[in-house]
Every structure is written in C-alpha cells, then in structure tokens.
Design a protein around this nucleic acid. Structure first.
Lengths: 115, 115
DNA sequence: TACACAATACGACAATTATTGAAATGTGCA
DNA sequence: TGCACATTTCAATAATTGTCGTATTGTGTA
C-alpha cells in the first residue's frame, strides 16, 4: 500500500452510498452479496449501484465473482487491513510499542478471509 | 460517528497532500506540528497547506491550537479511532468474537492521547 | 433460437473540489 | 507605534466526480 493506492481507497469510501455498500459487505463477510441485493439494500438504482461497485472494485476494496447470471461482490479484507495499517503507521512515535502491537492485531481483523 | 461524519472524514483523507499531512501528524503524536512545518514537509504552498488543514479540521480529524504566532495542529486520535471502528463495524458476522475484540483493541491505538 | 433477467457501459449535464495569487488578520518584538 | 512573520481569507479558474436515462452485454431457460 502506497499513498496513491490509499487515496484511491479513501476516495472510493468517501461517498454515502459507497460507504453503505462497503459496510454492508463488511458485515456480509467473505461470501458477499449480489449486485442487485446490494443496490436494493442501499437504495441505489441498478446503474448507480453498478457505478459505485465499480469504483470500490477499482480501488481494490472489493472484488467481483460471477455466479450464474448474478455477480457477487465481497470485501477484499486484506486490502482493508492494509489501508487501516497505512493510516496508523508509526502512530505516536512516543509509544511505538503500543501502536506497533495494536497495528499487528488490526491486521488480523476478520480472520474469516484467508490469505 | 455516523455515516455522514465518516464520509466527511474519508473525503478529507482522500487527497494526496491531506493524507500526507494526516500521516505526518499521526507520526508526530499529540504535540503536533505548526502549519508552516506541515506545509513545508508535504511540499504545499502556505495557502494550499492552510486549505487542506482546514479540511482536516472541519472533518474533526485534527485540531488547531495557537501557540504564540504559530498554530499547531495535532491529530484528534479519538476521532481517528471512531472512524476505524466505524469502517470495521460488525465485521464478518461469522466471527463476531474475533472482530469485536479486535475493534476494542483498535480503540486503544496511541494511548498517548488522553480521552 | 428466442425471451427474460442481471448487470454494465455510454454520453450529457450538474455539482463539488483543488489550485493559484493577492490581500487581510493576528501576534511578537524592537 | 510600526515592522516582520505566520497563517488565513477571498475570488476566479480548472479539474474531478456524481447522477440520470438509454442502450448494450452476458447468462439461464423454455
């Protein structure tokens, strides 16, 4: 994760509907949800939902898998962990032991996602 | 922290220079840095630096304190923790024990900042 | 093959955000 | 008081982003 990546991720999350989508998928876990379910849940039109999913996908925060005629989206948890770590990197030089260990723990968020 | 707040925070971070500023201040810790030091460190003009600092301040991610003729900015760590928690809320319903406890630990990031 | 449905792609318009330079505000010090 | 410095404010312009409707692609099923 570099600064450019992080900005893309943050911009992807910095939108009402996309944030709702992301949080919905965080809750849904590794199995994800279909584009239609997602759009309906956050009150987006199919076109709008697709646009926002594409943005999140482009940022690498979610990934798509076609299943029959549905496309399921799920959070890319490793990327999420990388983003959180990037934001808190070297937090408070004064207490490096504390911040360092907390970041390592943050990396283990949602062990349900392999890799 | 609600969705609207979070979007404002994320939009504030979704910019190259502002992200650099934020990470610089995360490293600097509770004592922060002056506007001039910050602008110089990230290669911003005084005007540009001021604009970006204002955005981060408006989002509540940093706060300003006048010290003589300098203005020092420091991260509002509690807000940062709230944002990270909001993003990972109810992470992976499948393993609530894991995500829940990890989030509690994330709240303790950088104990150097009281409350 | 032909139809129905899930989802995306495209083009146009509206709205928001970033950048720049010049001017103004506030503070410390001689 | 008056000067020097740190920082912000303002106004204008350029660039990016969101939204909407229509058309298109891809898949499953009769």
């Amino acid at each position: 994760m570099n600064s450019k990546d992080a900005v893309i991720c943050l911009a992807a999350l910095a939108n009402d509907q996309r944030l709702a989508i992301f949080r919905l998928l965080v809750k849904a876990g590794p199995s994800g949800l279909s584009a239609g379910e997602i759009a309906e849940a956050v009150g987006a039109t199919p076109t709008g939902g697709s646009f926002h999913l594409k943005e999140l996908d482009r940022a690498g925060l979610i990934h798509a898998t076609r299943v029959g005629r549905y496309i399921r989206y799920a959070v890319h948890f490793e990327k999420m962990r990388q983003l959180l770590s990037f934001l808190t990197e070297d937090c408070c030089q004064g207490q490096p032991e504390l911040c360092g260990s907390t970041i390592r723990k943050a990396r283990r968020l949602c062990k349900g996602e392999a890799k």
